[in-house]
Structure formats: C-alpha cells, structure tokens
Design a binder for these strands. Structure first.
Length: 282
DNA sequence: CTTTGGGCCTGGACGC
DNA sequence: TGCGTCCAGGCCCAAA
C-alpha cells in the first residue's frame, strides 16, 4: 500500500543505485498494467542517462538527462526489487517490467494486482499537463503547505474530511492509511464536513499530515539498509500506527477502559475503512 | 459542478 | 483439505 511516504522511501533507496546510470536493457513481461505500457518503451529509454529520481504525490519519477521522464506508479501491491550487478536471481511471478543499467544493476517492478502503471513523458511540462497530474493538489511536505492553504482548499466542500483528504486534488499523496492517522493526530473526527473545519483545526490537520508522513519516511529510511533484501520490503510504518487497523484496541491518546468504550472504532466511508477514537477526535 | 458506485486484480484471511 | 466469499488498496470513469 504505497502512499506518499512509502514512495518517498523507495525514491531515496533507488536514487543511489540509479542516478548517473545509463539504461542498457529494458524488458516487459506483458502489455501493461492498469494501463498499457508506453509504445516503443524500449526504444524511448534505451541509452538514456538517469539524472535523478523524483516524486510527485504517489508517482515515482525517473528523470533522464534529456529531460524525458519515466513515471512509475505502484498501485497498491507494487514493489521494486534491486538486483546487484551480476545477480543471478530468478524471475519471479508478477515481475512485469525491468530496467538494467550499463554497470549491470537492475530494478524489477513486481505488482501482483497490477493496479500500478508505467508512463513516459518527453518533458516535465508534458507530464504536468497529463490528466493524472494536472489537477493534483499541493505536496504536503514542503513548508508552504500550511493550515491556511489547506483551509482554503477545503472551503465549501461538503464531503467528510476523511474523504476530502483522500481526494488527490485537495492534497496530493495521502491515502487511506495516513488519512486516518493524520486525523487522529489533529484530534478531528473523520465524519466532520470538510468545509466546516476552522483555521485552527485546518492548521492542526496540516501539521498532522506532515508529521505522520515525515515519521513514516523516517521509519522507512531507518530500514533502508535492508532494502536490497530479496523481499524488497521498503520498511513500512505499521508499527507506528495509532489507529489504522486497530479496531477495538486502546488508542494512544485516551485512557478509558476498552471494555466499556469499545476502543478504536472502525467505520466505512465511501467504501473505505476509517479508524478513529470517538473520545479524542471531535 | 459534486458525489456515488463499479471495475480493475490477486492473495490472504476466514467460515464451512 | 478444499472450496467459496470477502476484503484490501489507488485511480479512473460513467452515471446521477
């Protein structure tokens, strides 16, 4: 379930492997994932030198020196494996795409559910004009993502704040897990109407979003040295969850008796699970 | 304009 | 044990 934090962790893990390398071999094992792979992908990226790795929302950007960009999205079950030069590791089930560098290092995209995607753009402006990026809201990590900015973007929205947070047009990169976690940190009920949050609440929420993502990135980063292990697990944050997937358990901010209160609640909003503490979040 | 619901896809958990 | 069912997730699109 790669949300922004996981994609950023992956970006940081891949950068030292890929940056400066030249694409030597491109392999695809099928026609595409949720959308077809770009036409003539091999011809488009073979021989290009990788300038750096970027990220926009949950999209991983492999940026070439030419200004062209290969975009990877991991859907919910996508992983990227790094193979060291000379590795004889066998192909695995659900390996769909791989890219090898001149020096022999290789990355492999594995995605059982195939909700991910691979896209190619001739330039950053062309990428930003694409429908997947055009309407994306602001990145939540930079300092200029303030409570005031969030408050303005929530204005007039009648939807529940939990669902508004998952709307990528309001803020980019927040998925189901960190929406619940950020609302807990901000002590705001997921059921509140988005447009009804005042400036102080919006500020708490903006802070909650940023802090939970930063903590998750830090936790992922701390496990980066294990990143090259065969399972490719990028060090998720599940041990740090306050409410997500903790139905019936005590919440960290509330000292009441779980036998009486029922602990953390699970509800369904827009078909998605939401977890929260009714005592702490108002 | 907004909101809702279905579709995509597989593996794991669960009940019988 | 082996079925069947449900759920998880991000994103897109059609419909209301």
């Amino acid at each position: 379930m790669p949300e922004l934090a996981e994609v950023e962790t992956i970006r940081r893990g891949l950068e030292p492997v890929l940056a400066g390398g030249r694409v030597a071999v491109v392999e695809t094992a099928r026609e595409g994932l949720r959308v077809p792979f770009p036409q003539k992908l091999r011809e488009k990226i073979s021989g290009l030198r990788i300038h750096k790795l970027g990220r926009r929302a949950k999209y991983l950007l492999i940026e070439f020196e030419t200004g062209e960009i290969l975009v990877l999205h991991l859907g919910m079950s996508g992983r990227i494996r790094i193979l060291a030069p000379g590795s004889a590791e066998a192909r695995q089930k659900h390996d769909h795409f791989s890219l090898s560098l001149d020096g022999g290092a290789q990355i492999v995209l594995n995605d059982p559910r195939r909700f991910g995607s691979v896209m190619f753009f001739a330039s950053l402006p062309e990428m930003e004009a694409h429908s997947a990026f055009r309407a994306l809201g602001p990145e939540p990590l930079p300092e200029n993502f303030t409570g005031r900015v969030l408050h303005a973007r929530l204005e007039g929205r009648k939807a529940a704040i939990k669902q508004a947070l998952m709307d990528q047009r309001i803020v980019a990169g927040v998925g189901n897990i960190y929406a619940s976690e950020a609302l807990f940190r901000a002590r705001i009920s997921p059921l509140r109407s988005a447009g009804a949050l005042d400036e102080a609440e919006s500020r708490r929420l903006a802070d909650g979003i940023r802090s939970v993502l930063e903590d998750a990135i830090a936790a992922g980063g701390s496990s980066l040295r294990d990143y090259r292990k065969a399972d490719g697990s990028p060090g998720y944050f599940q041990h740090g969850f306050a409410v997500y997937d903790r139905q019936g358990l005590p919440c960290p901010g509330c000292h009441c008796d779980v036998a009486k209160t029922g602990g953390i609640a699970k509800i369904i909003q827009g078909g998605r699970a939401t977890y929260y503490c009714e005592r702490v979040q108002k």
